[in-house]
Design a protein around this nucleic acid. Structure first.
Ligand code: MN
Ligand code: MN
Length: 542
DNA sequence: ACACCAGAGG
DNA sequence: TTCACACGCTCCG
DNA sequence: GAGCGTGTGTCTCCTCTGGTGTCC
């Protein structure tokens, strides 16, 4: 209500923009239903189009006519008539009791079902009545006295498919348009060729939808039955299939269905699946197999994270199968110190307590966690991240290139990243970072945390962080963005006089270093970067 | 009477 | 649909 | 204390409102 746009039918204009964008780019891939919908939609009168878009954007698919009241549309029944005639909306849908309860308020339920205890909660009333009212009826049959109507949107799935084609995903929705218009979400504008689109063939769209349905089943706690068993030719979708298998395996593990989990993990190449497979074998008591798989993995770990996990599991598994312990390589222990502090009230968190205690005028301390280094990387490499690589950007609302987490993200932009990172050799990086910080401020980015990086922090970081270290961090990040974008220490302390820095991971009572934090600390140790772990204990106060 | 929250909105 | 912490359990030296 | 698993809070724009239930 606070913000206003000039056009009261802004949502209709946005939807029409999206439809024509999608129609232009997917002419060869649309199926009959989608084509029919677009044709039909374009022939509707404006009020009917607007009402349909309101329904598409709302929860649905069932709506009470009285709840579809819009000044800019006018009379709802008149606006709905063409939608009913075209079959886009059903005017007398059969409703089961659950659907009916979703549309009625308590007072209406009390009137319609006088026998049920009005003091019960709605869900309990539903439980009681459900056995007596198994059959579906139309709204006017349920409540003959009611003057209201119920409409059912019939084109929700078609619109979801068109939304998927437009965005290339299903987590973005049509509100992106208005949020961008209002400046609430701001996106980098990348040149998008008229041929750019998220999907290259019809089958990929169908596969995406199938995988998405499976994922929803998993999230609902169900056991997904129809995950595609064969590898997919599209690497992006194959990655999503693998992720799905991994989630299904975890689901089975949590349900203690170890045989099923074992079958799933055995066929799953997703990162981490092999380690889970070993754990499941161990939990089954199949120590020989667990050890064999772990030993084989140890010869060729898929990444550092798996190497860490294997290093913990292998000594135990060797013992289980009666092998002698192997000489363990000494784990490099990080430098540590302990603070004993009074526990502040109100309690701001252990990191802030430690920050405030360590802070000095000439050695300010910031609570940055992953935000600082990722942001500096995102600023220096802005042009490479948002380079108009074919297929990476295909609509105006990309926070990141579509292939950010694909294996060939870096190879496809090698020259651009070289150009960005080479500025760390010449000293030009400081001005580039400052300029991006100014020019791109507030734009969505997969790396830059605008709210965390103020001018003071930025200048201190540029003063005190040596470019050699920035280069090592950024290169490591580019090697594996998913794995290396997190795990950085809580605090950073800048020695303004000496132009030095130190990173400090804060650990409160009971907290321990996590795997990604250990990997980060080990990396820093290898390259002579200062990191310490600060253990905080609370001063007893009676 | 009040707190909470899901949904709607720009 | 992330990331980090809090916390409880088992096992083992 | 190490190793492991699970639960939780804070994020997803922010504000307003109608409806629910007495709390999560
Ligand atoms: Mn932290
Ligand atoms: Mn910490």
């Amino acid at each position: 209500m606070a913000r206003t746009l000039d056009n009261p039918l802004y949502y209709l204009a946005n939807f029409e923009r999206a439809m024509s964008w999608t129609g232009e780019r997917y002419g060869d891939l649309l199926d009959e239903r989608e084509r029919a919908f677009l044709d039909c939609f374009n022939r509707l009168p404006p009020a009917a189009r607007a009402l349909l878009v309101r329904m598409v954007m709302r929860k649905g698919p069932l709506f009470r006519e009285s709840k579809l009241a819009y000044d800019e549309i006018g009379d709802t029944r008149a606006a709905a008539a063409p939608l009913l005639a075209a079959g886009l909306v059903d005017e007398r849908p059969a409703l089961n009791l659950d659907q009916l309860f979703g549309l009625l308020v308590r007072s209406e339920i009390a009137q319609a079902f006088p026998g049920v205890d009005a003091a019960l909660r709605k869900a309990e009333q539903l439980e009681r009545l459900r056995p007596q009212w198994p059959q579906a009826r139309c709204f006017d049959e349920w409540l003959p006295a009611a003057r209201d109507r119920v409409y059912a949107l019939r084109v929700g799935e078609v619109c979801d498919r068109l939304r998927l084609m437009f965005f290339g995903n299903l987590h973005q929705d049509w509100t992106e348009f208005v949020l961008a218009d209002l400046g609430i979400l701001r996106y980098e504008q990348v040149d998008i060729s008229p041929a750019s689109r998220g999907f290259g063939c019809r089958e990929d769209i169908e596969v995406y939808l199938r995988l998405h349905a499976c994922r929803e089943q998993i999230e609902a706690g169900a056991i997904p039955a129809d995950i595609p068993q064969q590898p997919l030719s599209n690497a992006w979708l194959e990655g999503r299939r693998q992720k799905l298998l991994f989630l299904a395996g975890q689901q089975q593990e949590r349900a203690a269905e170890f045989a099923a989990a074992r079958r799933i993990y055995a066929a799953c190449r997703h990162e981490g699946a092999r380690a889970r497979h070993i754990r499941v074998l161990e939990k089954c008591g199949d120590h020989e197999q667990a050890h064999a798989l772990a030993a084989a993995a140890w010869m060729q770990p898929e990444n550092e994270a798996e190497r860490q996990q294997l290093a913990r599991m292998l000594p135990r598994l060797r013992r289980r199968v009666g092998l002698p312990p192997e000489a363990a390589p000494p784990a490099a222990a990080p430098e540590e110190f302990t603070l004993v502090l009074p526990r502040p009230v109100p309690f701001p968190g252990v990191e802030l307590a430690a920050r405030d205690h360590l802070w000095r005028e000439d050695a300010p301390v910031h609570y940055v966690e992953n935000t600082l280094i990722n942001s500096l990387f995102g600023l220096l490499c802005w042009d490479a991240v948002f380079a108009a690589v074919p297929g990476a950007f295909f609509h105006p609302f990309h926070a990141a290139p579509a292939d950010l987490h694909s294996a060939d993200f870096l190879p496809r932009r090698a020259a651009a990243f070289d150009t960005c990172l080479s500025q760390l050799d010449s000293g030009a990086y400081r001005d580039t970072i400052r300029r991006r910080h100014r020019e791109k401020s507030g734009l969505q980015s997969p790396f830059v945390y605008w709210e965390a990086i103020g001018d003071t922090l930025l200048e201190q970081a540029l003063d005190c962080l040596p470019p050699e270290h920035l280069k090592l961090w950024f290169t490591r990040l580019l090697q594996d963005i998913r794995a290396n974008r997190a795990g950085m220490p809580d605090l950073i302390r800048f020695d303004l006089r000496e132009r030095r820095y130190e990173m400090i991971e804060v650990k409160g009572p009971g907290d321990r270093l996590q795997d990604n934090q250990l990997r980060w600390i080990a990396f820093c140790a290898r390259h002579g970067m200062p990191v310490r772990v600060c253990h905080v204990r609370w001063l007893e106060q009676e």
